[in-house]
Design a protein around this nucleic acid. Structure first.
Lengths: 199, 199
DNA sequence: TTCAAACGCGAGCGATTGCTCGCAAAAATC
DNA sequence: GATTTTTGCGAGCAATCGCTCGCGTTTGAA
């Protein structure tokens, strides 16, 4: 049931997603009420529901936008590079640095992504993000550790994504002068695990 | 303002904590309403508030009980053993296996512990658990990597605890036949990180 | 046996939630 | 200019939340 949107409406939808990202970042998913999101967007609660049928739909649309932005960032970090032959340190830099930058630039991202215990409604909303991350990591693993059985590769991808999810808050929450050290720790954990997979 | 408790009352308090652990495990902290906890304990909402002044107080008391149980489990796993000279594999077995068993036996534990984005009320409640874990890990790090500066040691302890928090749900959620493989992955991550600290 | 304190109940309060509805203004279509 | 559709509003509904309160029952001490 698509409805015809005016240009004004499309702009409003983007503003609502901006407001939702803000609210999710500051209050968390549950405490960010739809009325609060509408207020931040400068509109009434009723207007929000002209564009999104439910709070979950807002989260899903925001997650889709995150995935799109993240995918282009990931592609630009790997334009034509050979993942299989790359030095481990360089690989980690190319993967981790843009993702950390993305998390710093989009504070609302982690509210939809870095949550081990998602409510079922939110889990469905953030599934595209999870799937996108897992797919990219599995592709890298396939290129670098061809000997790994598919089941093991899938498990290792889940482990790597999980580690990144868990440690990102440590990085973003750290004071700016502590951040490089925390990023180094994150790379050390990921690198140590990857090394133990190959050796 | 302590009030005098009858033996019946003490038993009720333990029952309420059992019910709260159940509810937290099944529904998560926020969705586990005080009325639902009371119902699971077989008492009325009013009776619950005879023993605990607030939902947060219930969580805090439950966290305290978890810390006590965990501390004795940890002590019994290390009775007089020499952490500094121990083989890395044995160290990981001694630390990880009891903790995994504790998590499997106490499903409510992770709702209070394994949450990167705690609401401020819950953060205060689970702080004793965090502090207990950090202290034990820092003690082990101090014995095994004496060259590490205090700030680095504290950071590494935070990293190790965080990794464990993040990967525990992978272990407990896995089907029983997959569990050994997931536990092995957990130890591999922790071991890889510890090795990279010493080397 | 008496009596204050502890235990127990459950309707319901005040606040908040996600969301709806009736209606008006603006824009697109004819 | 007439009509339809989209945009916009904000009071407020039904449900849920943490928690209270009035009142009755049980318990232990004197």
């Amino acid at each position: 049931m698509e409805r015809r949107r005016q240009a004004r409406g499309e702009r409003r939808m983007a503003e609502i997603l901006d407001a939702a990202a803000d609210a999710f970042a500051e209050l968390g998913y549950e405490k960010a009420s739809t009325n609060a999101i509408a207020a931040r967007a400068g509109i009434s609660p009723g207007s929000l529901y002209q564009f999104f049928p439910s709070k979950e739909a807002v989260a899903r649309a925001l997650a889709d936008r995150f995935v799109a932005d993240m995918t282009t960032a990931h592609a630009s970090a790997f334009g034509g590079a050979d993942v299989a032959e790359m030095d481990l340190g360089e690989l980690l830099d190319r993967v981790v640095d843009p993702l950390v930058a993305f998390n710093l630039a989009n504070p609302g991202f982690k509210a939809l992504f870095a949550r081990p215990d998602m409510p079922s409604a939110l889990a469905e909303s953030s599934q595209p993000i999870q799937a996108a991350m897992l797919g990219q990591v599995e592709a890298i693993l396939g290129a670098r550790t061809p000997g790994l059985a598919p089941a093991d590769r899938a498990r290792s991808a889940r482990v790597l994504v999980r580690i990144f999810q868990a440690m990102t808050p440590l990085v973003t929450a750290a004071a700016e002068e502590e951040r490089p050290a925390e990023i180094a720790e994150l790379k050390r954990v990921l690198g140590g695990y990857l090394t133990s997979l190959s050796g």
